[in-house]
Design a binder for these strands. Structure first.
Ligand SMILES: [Mg+2]
Length: 626
DNA sequence: GATTGGCACACGAAC
DNA sequence: TGTGCCAATC
C-alpha cells in the first residue's frame, strides 16, 4: 500500500542553508501535489514554523491549508486534544508551565510527607531536584527506576520517595485535567505505541516528515520520528556542533546514530557557509576544535574576506555596557539598521546593564529569551482567571484566584476545593451559589460576581475578558498591592490583551502563549513594522537566526562558561560557537575585568573561550577607545 | 485561620 | 534583587 519512503539526514554547519533546504523541500512537495496534511514539519519554535510557512507561501504563491507545522510539543498537544478521552483528559486540558508544575510537585511531596510516619516527615529533598529528576527521566524515555539507577545511582535510596511523589503528581494532573510539557511528548508517544489504530492512522497520514535542528531532539522525540516515519520519507537536518539543549535532555547521539536506526538513510554533509565572512568562521572553527566530541568539520565560506572579530575588555561591567551602546550608535551612524544588530549573552541577567544604557540613550530594543513575562505575579493572576474559564478543574488557578480575595486563605481554599471538585461543573457550582465558604464571605461574593460576568461574556473575546477582570475588584486589589509600579503592570496586562486580540479563541491564546512566550513581542512589531529595534537575546533564543553585527557580552569566566557549566564545558563551547556564527559581517566579543552585580564585586578574568583563541584571529580594541 | 514581617538563600538556558 | 519560607501577630 504505502512504500517505504527514503530517509535523508543533512548534517551541515551554521549558515549552510539547512532551514532553507527544508523550506524548499516542503514547497516542492506541495508543488508535486502532495496533500498538505500528509506533511509533518517539525521546527524548534512555533515562530520558526510560522516563518517557514510564510516562506513556502512566497515560493509557491499560496499556502494550502492543512500543513502540520510546529514544535514537537505543539503537535503533541494537537494530537492529544483530538484523542483526549483515550489519555484520561478532556479536550480542554491545561498545559502546565514550569511554575505550575513546580507547585504541583511541591504539593505532591507535601501530601506524601503527611502519609509518612512521624519520624520520616522531616524528609528533606533539595529544591528543584524532584522537578529535574521527574522531567529528565521522561525526556530520556526511561522510567524513573531505570533513570535513577543508571544516571543518579547515588540517589537510589530515595527512589521509593521519587516514585510515590510521581504517582501523586500524576493523579493530581489527571484530576486537574492538565498535562505538563513532558506529557505532551511522552503521552503522545505512549498513545502511538499502545494504540495500533491511532498509530497506523498517523503513520499513514504523515508520509513526509521533516525536522529542523535535529541535534537538539531528546530520546522521546527521536522515537516519535522513528515510529511515525516507519514507512514515510524522512528529512532531518542539524549540526552536532550546535547542540545546546542538553538541559532539556537533548542528545547529540540522535543525529549521530540516526543512520544506524534507519539503514536506508542517506547522510549528506555540507560545510559550505553562506553567512559569515571568513574571519568570523575562522574564529568559530578554532574555538570548536577544542571540543573532542564533535565531528571534525572545517567550514568554508563563499564570502569575500571582511573584518577580523574584535575583542574589548572593559574595566567593569558598566563600562562594558557603555561600550556596547556606544558601538551600536556608531554602527547606526555608519548606516546600519538597528535591526541588523544583536547583543547576545549566556544568561539574561547579563543584559541588565546594557538595557539601562539603552533606556538612557532612548534606543529601541526588543529582548528575547529569559522572558519572565509569564512569571510576573499580575500576569499570572490574569491568566489564572482565564484558565478557570477554559478548564474549571484547574486547581492551581482556582487557588490563586481564591487566595487573592480578602478573608480567604489556604485552609478555606482546601475546604472549598473539596466541595467544588465533587461537582461535575465546578464553575457553575460556584456561580450558581451552590458552594460558599465558612468565612470570608465578602471576598467570596466579589469573586462570584466577577466569575458570573466572565461566564456570560464572549469566551473567544480575550481582551474583553481581561477588561472584565480589570474592572472588577481585582483592579483595586492590584493597585493596592503594587502602588509603586501599578501603571507598568497595567501596561503588561494590556500587552497580554493585545496579544489576545490576535487569537481566535481563549484556548488558542493560552496554549500558544505557554508554548512560546516570545509571541508576546509580536504585536509590538506588527503595530509598527517600519520601526527598527535592536535585538537583545540569549544565545539559546538566537538559535537559527543571523545578524550583520553580533555583540557577544559577558565573556567572563564563571559567566560564560557559567560556573555550573564547567561540568559540560563542551556544550558551553558549542553555545559560544552558535553565538559567534550568528554574525554575518562583524563580531564583537566583550568582557570586563571587574564585575559589580548584586552584593559585591568580582574579579573573574576573561572567559576561557577568549583565552583559548589564537591571538591572530581577532583584534583588540583598547580600553580608552571611547 | 489569615496576614504580615523578617530572614535566608540563590542567581541558567525554555518547549 | 527578589522570592520563598517560617514564626509572630491580628
Ligand atoms: Mg537553521
Amino acid at each position: 500500500m504505502t512504500h517505504r519512503g527514503s530517509a535523508l539526514l543533512g548534517i551541515a554547519g551554521p549558515g549552510s542553508g539547512k532551514t532553507r533546504a527544508l523550506t524548499f523541500r516542503v514547497a516542492n512537495l506541495l508543488q508535486e501535489n502532495v496533500r498538505p496534511e500528509n506533511i509533518l514539519l517539525v521546527t524548534f519554535t512555533n515562530k520558526a514554523a510560522e516563518e517557514m510557512k510564510t516562506r513556502v507561501k512566497e515560493i509557491i504563491g499560496s499556502l494550502p491549508p492543512g500543513l502540520w507545522a510546529g514544535t514537537f510539543h505543539s503537535i503533541g498537544a494537537r494530537i492529544l486534544r483530538r484523542h483526549a478521552s483515550l489519555v484520561n483528559r478532556g479536550p480542554n486540558f491545561s498545559i502546565l508551565d514550569e511554575d505550575d508544575r513546580g507547585a504541583m510537585i511541591k504539593s505532591s511531596l507535601a501530601a506524601l510527607k503527611l502519609k509518612l510516619p512521624a519520624k520520616d516527615q522531616n524528609l528533606f529533598i533539595k529544591k528543584g531536584l524532584l522537578r529535574t529528576i521527574l522531567s529528565s527521566a521522561r525526556n530520556s524515555a526511561l522510567d524513573l527506576e531505570d533513570y535513577v539507577y543508571t544516571r543518579l545511582p547515588e540517589l537510589s535510596h530515595y527512589l521509593p520517595v521519587f516514585k510515590q511523589v510521581e504517582e501523586i503528581y500524576e493523579e493530581k494532573k489527571r484530576l486537574a485535567n492538565a498535562f505538563d510539557f513532558d506529557d505532551l511528548l511522552s503521552v503522545w508517544l505512549k498513545l502511538l505505541q499502545e494504540n495500533k489504530q491511532i498509530r497506523q492512522r498517523y503513520q499513514e497520514q504523515f508520509q513526509h516528515i521533516l525536522v529542523d535542528e535535529y541535534q537538539d531532539t531528546n530520546a522521546i522525540q527521536d522515537q516519535l520520528v522513528l515510529l511515525l516515519g516507519e514507512n514515510s520519507s524522512i528529512c532531518l537536518v542539524g549540526d552536532d556542533a550546535q547542540s545546546i539543549y542538553s538541559f532539556r535532555c537533548a542528545e547529540i547521539g540522535n543525529i549521530l546514530t540516526f543512520s544506524q536506526k534507519r539503514p536506508d538513510c542517506t547522510v549528506v554533509k555540507l560545510v559550505q557557509n553562506y553567512r559569515s565572512v571568513p574571519e568570523i568562521l575562522e574564529l568559530a572553527n578554532y574555538s570548536i576544535s577544542n571540543n573532542r566530541q564533535q565531528i571534525p568539520k572545517e567550514l568554508f565560506t563563499v564570502r569575500a574576506p571582511g573584518e577580523k572579530p574584535y575583542i574589548y575588555i572593559a574595566s567593569d561591567n558598566f563600562k562594558e555596557a557603555q561600550f556596547i551602546v556606544h558601538k551600536v550608535l556608531e554602527l547606526y551612524d555608519e548606516g546600519q539598521s538597528l535591526s541588523d544588530i544583536a547583543v547576545l549573552y549566556r544568561s539574561s541577567y547579563l543584559a541588565q546593564d546594557v538595557e539601562l544604557e539603552l533606556l538612557k540613550k532612548n534606543i529601541p530594543y526588543m529582548t528575547f529569551g529569559g522572558l519572565k513575562f509569564l512569571q510576573r505575579a499580575h500576569i499570572k493572576d490574569i491568566l489564572a482567571w482565564l484558565k478557570i474559564l477554559e478548564n474549571p478543574l484547574d486547581e492551581i488557578s482556582w487557588q490563586r484566584v481564591i487566595l487573592m480575595h480578602e478573608g480567604l486563605g489556604t485552609a478555606t481554599f482546601q475546604q472549598l476545593w473539596q466541595k467544588m471538585r465533587s461537582y461535575p461543573q465546578p464553575l457553575q457550582a460556584v456561580t450558581g451559589e451552590q458552594i460558599s465558604p465558612p468565612r470570608g464571605l465578602k471576598g467570596w461574593k466579589s469573586l462570584v460576581g466577577t466569575l458570573r460576568q466572565l461566564e456570560d461574556a464572549d469566551r473567544e473575546n480575550v481582551p474583553w475578558l481581561i477588561q472584565i477582570i480589570l474592572e472588577s475588584h481585582y483592579g483595586k486589589y492590584l493597585k493596592e498591592k503594587y502602588p509603586d509600579d501599578f501603571a507598568e503592570r497595567i501596561m503588561g496586562i494590556e500587552r497580554l490583551a493585545a496579544y489576545g486580540s490576535r487569537c481566535a479563541s481563549l484556548r488558542e491564546f493560552l496554549e500558544s502563549l505557554i508554548l512560546e512566550e516570545a509571541l508576546i513581542m509580536e504585536d509590538l512589531k506588527e503595530e509598527n513594522p517600519e520601526k527598527e529595534y535592536l535585538t537583545l537575546s540569549t544565545i539559546h533564543s538566537a538559535k537559527g537566526k543571523e545578524w550583520k553585527t553580533v555583540l557577544l557580552i559577558g565573556l567572563n569566566e564563571g559567566r560564560f562558561p557559567t560556573s555550573q557549566g564547567i561540568k559540560n564545558i563542551e556544550e558551553e563551547r558549542r553555545l559560544f560557537y552558535v553565538a559567534a556564527t550568528r554574525a554575518k559581517d562583524y563580531l564583537y566579543l566583550t568582557s570586563s575585568r571587574e564585575e559589580y552585580r548584586g552584593w559585591g564585586s568580582y574579579l573573574s578574568g576573561p572567559s576561557s573561550f577568549i583565552r583559548e583563541l589564537p591571538p591572530h584571529c581577532y583584534q583588540v580594541i583598547f580600553e580608552d577607545y571611547f
